[in-house]
Amino acid sequence: MKKLYLHPLPVRIWHWINAVSFVVLIVTGLQIRYREFLGLMKFRDAVDVHNFFGFLIIFNFFLWLVYYIVTGKIKIYIPPLSIKKFVLGCIRQARYYGYGIFLGEENPHHSSPDNKFNPMQQIAYLSIMVVLIPLQLWTGLLLWDIKGFASWIDMFGGIKIVDTVHVFLFLFFTSFLFVHVYLATLGHTATEHIKAMFTGYEEIEEHVH
């Protein structure tokens, strides 16, 4: 077994701030939206906590953006530019999760600091980090001060539309979270990837070819 330094400290800090924020935002979001079903806290407190973590996650997003652009590591999010390579890579990865994994086959993708994500992860995380998260943060910001951002909201088509986008993405992220956590358990051991996210080091089996 060899140890591979896969997650540098800034990435780990970003990830865990993001993780905590996501959970808190989801819970407070549910509390705000479904007051009649949930009584975890007062509406007012839920709004305040939601706003705090909302700003935290905005700050965190820029931490991610600056880190990945400055270090040039952003390229790990970019899927293969060749469509054929990308499609084949996706099929290979999907085949693994849908078939190979059950037969005890090896994950066709081997993470390294320069090639961290498989093509499916790349396209998913790229869309999330570049489109969905910014959209969620932006709509959240607009909803935070509806009067102040009235003209932006108007450009979006109205407060009801902004809110619907925000809620739709919130529901999407909630469902994605289950998949994300589950996939994190599909290492050689269930906790391997999770541990790595704390320590930065992933244990890699040395292959004998």
Binding site: I32, R33, Y34, R35, E36, F43, V47, D154, G157, G158, I159, K160, I161, D163, T164, V167, F168, L171, T174
Partner: peptide, 19 residues
């Protein structure tokens, strides 16, 4: 009613089901 929305009270029913 694109300019009218109240947190928690004017939820789109369909969005709840999609959720």
């Amino acid at each position: 009613l694109r300019q009218f929305y109240v947190l928690g009270s004017t939820r789109l029913k369909i969005l709840d089901w999609i959720g």
